[in-house]
């Protein structure tokens, strides 16, 4: 399995070598902040996973043992690399209208691997840049949702009493309305063309289930022997929360986050399809589907490509999430 680790690295090096001349583009594009964010967040996530399993290298190889996990990591790795290095790999700017007169809705060809869209933009480039936007939204919104959800869940689980009562009824209210409804109301009425506000809104509507999960974990851990013992030793409550409880709720949170990114990508796509998600000219997978859905008969490939990209990404994330679940908390592995 050791060789597996080198696959994404090799791919990356190949890319850099092939397009070495354009490495400068990466730094000069205006969207550098976003690509750094994407790269950073993924590195962070990888680091967390790494740290959790590093002391036992055999665990790592065990983790990647199942065939589907290897495929999923490869797919996800490739998509991430393509996303981060989109300015180099794309060949065209995603918003450039190449030839308005003769270049509209061209079917896939060598020059345009995925064809062109209704204003002659190169779909390959748009899907690559769309990957950045979709993944960025996924990662940032989930990071936010997880942070809020963990804090709320810990507070509810640990303090109990009226704090728990109030917080959990809020969570009930949040969960009793379909998420798409919340998002439709907020995004359409409060109106935004700013992608970061969209991320904020998706994050703010996504923490309810995490807090429920965290609360249940805290309730369980609170009664465990080592916590009772720590309390007996006179360790402060804050100390118990930070030292004893938090580390123990991290594994389920990581699983939750991995699956959550996929869900956010789906939610973003749905919102964009209804016209309330990412606003043009930003390409996200959802907006590309929306553009294409207006030409589904004339140019079915426009809708197909980003849809497949979404499904691949979300499947890969789900496989990895499942695998993390079995590795990190084997106790619950039989459950969902």
């Amino acid at each position: 399995m050791r060789s597996f680790r080198w696959v994404p690295v090799t791919l990356f090096v190949l890319f850099v070598v092939v397009r070495a001349g354009r490495i400068g583009d990466l730094l000069s594009t205006g969207t550098f902040v976003e690509q750094t964010l994407v790269a950073l967040t993924f590195t962070l996530l990888a680091a967390i996973i790494w740290l959790t399993i590093t002391p036992w290298p055999e665990v790592l190889s065990k983790f990647f043992k199942p065939f589907d996990v290897r495929i999923a990591s490869l797919v996800l790795g490739a998509i991430m690399i393509l996303a981060v290095f989109a300015p180099i790999a794309s060949g065209h700017h995603p918003n450039t209208q190449l030839d308005l007169v003769n270049g509209q809705l061209l079917p896939p060809s060598l020059a345009h691997p995925f064809g062109t869209d209704f204003v002659s933009r190169d779909l390959w480039s748009r899907v690559l840049f769309g990957a950045r936007v979709s993944l960025m939204i996924g990662v940032l919104a989930v990071t936010m949702a997880i942070t809020i959800g963990t804090m709320v869940g810990m507070a509810a689980g640990y303090f109990g009493g009226w704090v728990e009562l109030v917080l959990m009824r809020l969570v009930d209210a949040g969960l009793s309305i379909p998420r798409v409804f919340w998002l439709l109301v907020i995004v359409s009425l409060w109106g935004t063309t700013d992608i970061y506000v969209l991320i904020l809104i998706i994050g703010l509507t996504g923490w309810f289930s995490t807090s429920r999960l965290v609360r249940a974990e805290v309730l369980r851990i609170r009664e465990e022997d080592f916590v009772v013992a720590a309390r007996g030793l006179g360790i402060s409550e804050a100390g118990i929360v930070i030292r004893q409880i938090l580390p123990n709720v991290v594994p389920p949170i990581i699983v939750n986050a991995t699956l959550g990114i996929g869900q956010v990508i789906l939610v973003e796509a749905g919102l964009s399809f209804l016209g309330f998600g990412v606003q043009p000219p930003w390409p996200s997978w959802g907006t590309i589907i929306q553009d294409g859905s207006a030409r589904i008969i004339a140019a079915p490939w426009i809708v197909t490509v980003p849809g497949v990209a979404i499904a691949l990404t979300v499947v890969s994330l789900a496989i990895l999430g499942d695998r993390l679940q079995t590795t990190l908390n084997p106790r619950d592995s039989a459950q969902f």
């Binding site: 209208q97 308005l100 204003v119 063309t193 016209g275 606003q279 043009p280 000219p281």
Partner: peptide
């Protein structure tokens, strides 16, 4: 208006 695809493409041109 960003909501109008025709005006959006014309503006770019």
């Amino acid at each position: 208006p960003a909501s109008d695809p025709n005006r959006t493409s014309a503006a770019v041109i």
